[in-house]
């Protein structure tokens, strides 16, 4: 009996990046911490993007699907200098680099029951927006039940709130055709680059899932986000996406990760 050879590749885990840092940096957390007291859950993050760090921890704690789009901060009120002193000494006249100006963030909410992620994440976003961390965010849900947390406000060069339209809300046109999921995503990003003049790259750590499945995606004046979601749905898997923004290049980076929960299995 012939069986199709299949490999299930399990668990692309957190990337252990050996980036040697030479400059003194804030003592950020590697992961947000989740603690319980009675019926309350407290999530504590400390990162240049503390909202994303909190969301990442909650995804893994509860197995929630949550999409995230960074508020595209660019001013000295939303980003801080992150230039390595050692690099600066050898590049005295070159532009430096920045990182988001975030730091500590603590939020709490009632222990969510089944389908309780909407209220918990809504409260998370509300509490984040009350801090001085960079960007203001909106909690949204789609007709398909996806949860999106998207940046909708930054601070301008003089520190005034500036509303921004999330770039994935931009209407784009993509010819309807059957493609691999990978090519469908690339088509959406290419159309979005044409529509906005902004650079976007697909930064996923594994492309296999997207190369091995095909989907028909297209639309006229459709929100890029909806087309992206249709492409991802073609995999038949539950996936989160994150769209980050680097103002130094400038470039948006799209990452996609599987919805999953932490398992008790020991790491290899």
């Amino acid at each position: 009996m012939f069986r199709q050879m299949q490999l299930a590749i399990v668990s692309v885990l957190t990337l252990a990046a050996g980036f040697a840092q030479t400059a003194a940096r804030p003592a950020f957390f590697s992961h947000a911490r989740i603690e319980r007291s009675g019926s309350r859950v407290t999530v504590t993050s400390n990162d240049s993007e503390p909202l994303l760090q909190a969301i990442a921890a909650l995804r893994l704690e509860y197995g929630w699907q949550v999409d995230w789009e960074q508020a595209p901060g660019y001013s000295r009120f939303d980003v801080v200098d992150d230039t390595s002193p050692a690099w600066r000494t050898t590049h005295p006249n070159d532009p430096g680099v920045t990182r988001p100006s975030g730091g500590s963030f603590v939020a709490s909410f009632s222990e969510p029951g089944p389908n309780g992620e909407h209220l918990a994440l809504y409260e998370l976003v509300e509490q984040y927006n009350a801090t001085g961390n960079p960007g203001k965010y909106s909690f949204r849900t789609t007709e398909d039940g996806r949860i999106e947390i998207v940046g909708t406000q930054v601070l301008d060069d003089v520190g005034r709130p500036q509303d921004v339209r999330p770039i994935l809300d931009t209407p784009i046109t993509v010819e309807s055709a059957e493609r691999t999921v990978y090519d469908s995503i690339k088509s959406v990003l290419a159309a979005l680059e044409s529509a906005t003049g902004k650079k976007l790259i697909f930064g996923v750590a594994s492309e296999s899932l997207f190369l091995n499945t095909r989907v028909t995606v297209g639309g006229t004046n459709a929100a890029a986000r909806r087309l992206l979601e249709r492409a991802l749905a073609g995999t038949g898997r539950q996936l989160n996406y994150d769209l980050g923004f680097n103002p130094d290049v400038p470039v948006y980076v799209l990452n996609v990760s599987p919805v999953g929960r932490l398992s008790s299995r020991a790491a290899p």
């Binding site: 050879m5 299949q6 490999l7 590749i9 668990s11 885990l13 590697s30 197995g63 296999s208 899932l209």
Partner: peptide, 25 residues
């Protein structure tokens, strides 16, 4: 960065290779 424990659900399937049976895609 600290390594996470295993994440359930993060799987994908690699198809059959074009060179015949017992070939990974």
């Amino acid at each position: 960065m600290e390594q996470y424990p295993t994440v359930e659900g993060s799987t994908w399937t690699v198809g059959e290779g074009s060179a015949g049976h017992n070939q990974y895609g």
